[in-house]
Structure formats: C-alpha cells, structure tokens
C-alpha cells in the first residue's frame, strides 16, 4: 500500500519534469493540443465554483431572505413592534376617557355611587 502511494509521488514528479523540465515551451504546446483538459486542470476541477453554487449561494440566500428577512425582521421584530404600536394605539383610544369635563366626571361619580348603593341593597 505504501509503495502505491510513493508510486503516485514519483509519477507526479516524473510528469512535472517531463512537462516543464526544459522551460515552458512543452507545457504550452500540450495546453494548446488539449485545451479542454487544460481548462479543467487549471480550474482545479472547478470544485470551488461547484461548492459556491451548491452550498455557498443557497446558504447565503436562505440566511438573508428567510432567516433574516422573514424570521428576524418580519416574525420576531414585526410582532414586537406590532405589540408596541398596539399598546400605543390602545392608549390613544383609552385616553379619550379623560375629557376634562367636570360635569362628565361628576355624572360618572354619581352613577358609581348609585350603582354601589343598588348593589348593596340587592345583596343585603
């Protein structure tokens, strides 16, 4: 087993010496004769580009659009800011009870007293 691996080393060394041993000329001639193979090898089998399109870009898209856009911004922050604005609007509506009109307040107070007396009379 170890001999096979060393064999790969030696083969690689021999191949490099064959192609580039005497300058760049033979290397360029080989590149011209096998253009597609040359592109594949110098592109490192395009593994980086494969990873980028299979994993990198989808991950980025999902993280940005779904996790950030829908999850964080819309669902979580949206519900929080929504609750806050709900509280503000409710407070705005409820504050209309404060009319500032003394007559209205006295009327409410009298109604309250009458109600209390009625309840006490009803419940002994």
């Amino acid at each position: 087993m170890r001999r096979h691996i060393v064999g790969f080393d030696i083969a690689g060394l021999a191949g490099a010496m064959f192609v580039y041993g005497k300058g760049l000329a033979r290397g360029e001639a080989l590149a011209a004769r096998f253009p597609r193979l040359h592109r594949l090898l110098s592109g490192k089998y395009f593994v980086d580009e494969l990873y980028e399109s299979l994993l990198g870009r989808p991950l980025h898209w999902v993280s940005e659009r779904i996790f950030l856009g829908v999850g964080d911004r819309f669902l979580i922050d949206g519900s929080l800011n929504g609750m806050a604005s709900l509280a503000q609007r409710a407070a705005g509506r409820l504050s209309r009870v404060e009319t500032g009109s003394l007559q209205f307040y006295v009327l409410l107070a009298v109604a309250g007293v009458v109600g209390c007396l009625a309840w006490m009379w009803r419940n002994g």
């Binding site: 991950l59 980025h60 999902v62 993280s63 940005e64 996790f67 950030l68 999850g71 964080d72």
Partner: peptide
C-alpha cells in the same frame, strides 16, 4: 446555526 447563518449576511 441560526445565529451563524444570520452573521453570514
């Protein structure tokens, strides 16, 4: 995982 994914973008 979610924290890391969001950090990415």
């Amino acid at each position: 995982v979610y924290g890391a994914c969001l950090a990415l973008v």
